[in-house]
Design a protein around this nucleic acid. Structure first.
Lengths: 107, 107
DNA sequence: CGCTTATATGCAAAAATTGATATATAATAA
DNA sequence: TTATTATATATCAATTTTTGCATATAAGCG
């Protein structure tokens, strides 16, 4: 179905600062939960909750690798909407205190 | 300011089926409240309240003409976002039972 | 076990929705 | 002209529903 409700639901997912920040970060590259924790400076449970919402809406997909779970964007529409509102995606970030594979390796 | 909060607030305005429908209709051409009432099939007070929200967010602007108040879109970003999600704007609609100037004249 | 991630529960705050009422303009009768 | 009625729109108040976020706990992997 392609109702206004459906479209509104998508916008609803995006209408949250932390979810938006998470999506913006994932737009740069995939990331594990602890990385997103460091980026958003929020408790782990909180980040996981938001990720569940994004997962349920099929905006992100998760893939387990050892003890880490990596998330990435699934949908091009999301990228377009982020581009329209936030602008071009930035480069990978290395937030203070993140010990994820990417951050340890590249810093 | 250009924080995630600011962007999220915009998405929040859009995250509502009736507001979305109103914006989609205004994208075709300006419209008075009674027209939007007929299009959305909602009580007048309800439509007015949604219009107030859209006004406060500077997404629409109102102009009084006699007893009618005409609303139109103000913002190009809104048009872009609607286009990305809903697609191209359709032609003017003439909902059943609307007695607004446009609908009376053209039908 | 320690580390990372996911889920469950609770509650205050905010938002959606509905109903009643107020205001302003126009049309019409006296 | 004034008084009255109808129409269009806005605002207020009350209620229900949803969200945001914290705390506690569970589950899976090395």
């Amino acid at each position: 179905m392609n109702t206004y409700k459906t479209k509104a639901d998508l916008f609803h997912i995006l209408s949250h600062p932390v979810r938006l920040q998470i999506l913006d970060e994932l737009r740069k590259r995939q990331a594990c939960v602890c990385h997103l924790q460091a980026v958003t400076k929020r408790p782990q449970a909180y980040v996981s909750q938001q990720l569940k919402i994004l997962r349920d809406a099929d905006l992100v997909i998760d893939e387990k690798d050892g003890q880490n779970v990596f998330y990435r964007l699934t949908c091009d529409l999301t990228r377009e909407l982020l581009k329209e509102t936030i602008g071009q995606a930035g480069g990978p970030s290395h937030p203070e205190g993140c010990t994820c594979p990417f951050c340890s390796q590249e810093k």
